[in-house]
Design a binder for these strands. Structure first.
Lengths: 247, 247
DNA sequence: TAGATTGTTAATCGATTAACAATC
DNA sequence: TAGATTGTTAATCGATTAACAATC
């Protein structure tokens, strides 16, 4: 809880709201492209996939940008949100780990169009240093520090295998990066003040599987297949107390 | 809100807990691989990147799988969590949209190793139907329904461009899929009972940018700025002073 | 037994939601 | 003015956390 000066105060946007602002931004961009000059909280909420009470509450943390009885000016609100998020200017980004996923990320147009500029692709494997990906040279990982300094990079993306991720994170932090997007399935330890967000594909699928399992009353899928080695972890007591009551 | 029979009752695991179970599972797998037979809540929590109170509270929703004074049996707890999530058996999965990201997903080993089996890759572009990706034929999108039926697919992954995503989702739902992992930057409308999780790369970066902006005193990603140098955050009305309510 | 650690309680914190007064 | 819609309030719900009694 850092103290704020009165001038910039009033500024404590809840995390849940911060996470939705980019969704609103996208919805507004879409409305703007279709030529809609104005929208109600109901319309915008629906385009963003939330309810209107939540939308209005969220927007209220930014200020009063609507007009009662009328709604919101699409362009105006869009700009205000973009400014709040910080995407009114360019953010240079480095991507470390240029395997399949790194390739996809480097080519991802959604970054560029939202103010994120990929300034370097790094990989520890010298075999990849001859490649170009998305028109950008793949360079040695050891170039990280100089690139970060020269280009003022604050955001790094990790798309290496899990075993390399912590080392990469350490190097990023040492180089001055303080925001990391981590795609490696690995918990990262970072110092206070460094933000890490993780995107974990297999975790997302597992969450879906959990709910799916409950929907299909355990029926759906196939037959239970033993998890390597773990199969009889519980032996008899296996489903002991819990006795599922499945099919 | 489905009614539960008494035998399988007691089963209402909070969403926040469900989302962490896969993290615990991974940490336990890692401990198991390193030959650790037993661990305390403190150790496991640290490996999973949460505090131990939260871990114990989470595990308490599953049952009492630990031993006071001792800790948890790694293999046993691992099996219990795997069973709870539903990854003790195989989940057939289809991926629709085999561009850069679809390629990466098809090749992602983390799926396979966690019980997700990619049974088909689909793309609407006939130009891609000759390809093989990760050893799997790319087939026409129109094959979706028959594949879902034949293979009992319950989970679908969408990695198409945004404009195609809703149509793909509709087709998936019509075919009988009721869990969708959506990578397209598009809000999906689906009927009650269908679960959608979204992974949105540019939203993640925007959330990082928001916090980064506040860390680096609002200035564009320029100055590296000391990590704890947040004290000065805001400079001097730097952000055109947050002078809200601009009429 | 003495030491260790779980499982649970209760307090706190943060997020969601419905309702409505303010006001365009 | 009358109708519409915001911004805010207050109630509710869910998640986190510290503390500790239970118990191995």
């Amino acid at each position: 809880m850092t103290e704020r000066t009165p001038t910039e105060a009033a500024r404590d946007i809840p995390e849940a709201t911060v996470a939705r602002l980019p969704v609103y931004l996208r919805a507004l961009t879409s409305l703007a492209e279709s030529g809609t000059p104005t929208c109600s909280s109901e319309e915008l909420a629906s385009a963003a996939g939330v309810n209107s009470a939540k939308l209005r509450k969220d927007l209220s943390y930014l200020g009063s940008y609507g007009t009662r009885g009328v709604g919101y000016d699409v362009e105006y609100l869009r700009y205000q949100i973009a400014r709040e998020i910080g995407v009114t200017h360019d953010w240079p980004v480095v991507i470390v780990g240029i395997g399949n996923l790194g390739h996809a990320l480097a080519n991802f147009s959604g970054f560029r169009s939202r103010g994120f500029r990929v300034v370097a692709l790094l990989d520890a494997d010298p075999g990849r240093h001859r490649e170009q990906v998305a028109g950008i040279d793949v360079r040695p990982f050891s170039d990280l520090a100089s690139i970060v300094e020269e280009q003022g990079v604050a955001i790094g993306v990790i798309s290496t295998p899990a075993h390399a991720a912590q080392d990469v994170a350490d190097a990023m932090v040492a180089a001055g990066i303080s925001s990391i997007l981590n795609f490696a399935p690995q918990v990262l330890a970072v110092p206070e003040g460094v933000d890490v967000r993780k995107v974990d594909l297999s975790i997302e699928l597992q969450i879906l599987a959990y709910h799916q399992q409950r929907k299909s009353s355990s029926a759906a899928g196939q037959e239970p297949v033993a998890l390597d080695g773990v199969g009889d972890a519980g032996g008899l007591g296996d489903l002991d107390g819990r006795v599922e009551a499945p099919a």
